[in-house]
Design a binder for these strands. Structure first.
Lengths: 184, 184
DNA sequence: CTAACTGTACCGAACGTTTGGTATAATGTC
DNA sequence: GACATTATACCAAACGTTCGGTACAGTTAG
């Protein structure tokens, strides 16, 4: 089987146990692949597995969020669609975000640059959308950051409280709160 | 030396390297104590070290944030003071939050309950303050959660972008944005 | 005053286990 | 036959943890 087959399992493992908690034994068990097979598909080892998952997430974000934000329709409903799709990926707030896991795990140095680029692109797409719809450039930049803050923060809080509702409410309120102040 | 002496070093280590990345070798090196000596002070091992740090953080939060929020003065300036003190602890956004690290690390199960209580108490204190200053109860609850979301989210983003300014701006805007809608 | 004892602090060295990783030989597939 | 894939067996290194024991400050007893 092609290595792409195992991306869902890998993503699930890293989200459930963290970068350090997802040991090769667990990965081997979950994927049904022996260690040798894992190293056949991922010669770079665990790090390459994460990188492959990041490749997948990056292209997912591009196809399903960034391009959509750059599309047509009124800004608020495009942002609403972003939130809907995010609710899907994070299973309504029950799943943590891999980027945060990597950022706070023991291998943060290895993945920091990739997460940084990912965040930047995401923010940029939102900023572009807000500017396009008449918002002041500086304010748009702040609102773009606010979006990421709301997403990451509500995910953390939902994890901490073991209650998905903070994330769900955040996704509900995000579109309108980002657009506030436009078309005066 | 009493084990409390090593709390600052431990906190620093766990924040810098994460729960899994802060190995006993590093802890031994940083504290200047041999591994065996560490087990003299912390018979419960690494987990007890974290618990001790959590004890410290919990009492810090209580003394410096929760009690202050429950004090006197107008709400906005009390929230402002909270943000000022948080800026100190997180070194203006350069330092990550231990609770998030534990929540996303490999030992999340071990520390989840403590983080949950900590978050709850913190939110409650903010909610009480907002209600006390005339805010609707339901809205106050949401704003309490929003506060934690802004703190944790902006810390994550600052980590990810390697730029403390998102956190700093969040701390600057938090007091007024929480009070919005009161005294109509 | 002294000698025996006790408790705290500390440490070098090793423990058993698990980690990520690698040979190599066998198996499946075209 | 050739090549991709896999299972078995193995490895060095690192992990958290424990052992046996030293140093030394108090405390107690004669």
């Amino acid at each position: 089987m092609a290595k792409e087959t195992y991306i869902p399992s890998l993503l699930q493992l890293f989200r459930q146990y963290g970068y350090d908690g997802a040991t090769l034994s667990k990965i081997s068990q979950e994927t049904g692949l022996g260690k040798a097979s894992l190293y056949h598909h991922f010669p770079g080892g665990k790090d390459e597995m994460v990188q492959t998952v990041l490749d997948y997430l990056e292209s997912w974000l591009d196809k399903n969020i960034l391009q959509m934000l750059d599309g047509e329709g009124d800004p608020a409903s495009r942002l609403q669609q972003m939130c809907d799709r995010l609710s899907g990926v994070y299973e309504g707030g029950k799943q943590p975000c891999l980027s945060a896991i990597l950022l706070l795990g023991s291998a943060r140095d290895v993945f920091h640059d990739r997460v940084k680029t990912l965040y930047k692109n995401w923010i940029d797409a939102i900023v572009t959308l807000l500017i396009e719809s008449g918002m002041d450039e500086k304010l748009a930049q702040q609102r773009g950051e606010d979006a990421l803050i709301a997403i990451q923060g509500s995910l953390i809080l939902s994890q901490g409280l073991n209650d998905p509702s903070p994330f769900q409410r955040a996704m509900q309120q995000l579109p309108s709160s980002l657009c506030q102040g436009v078309e005066p």
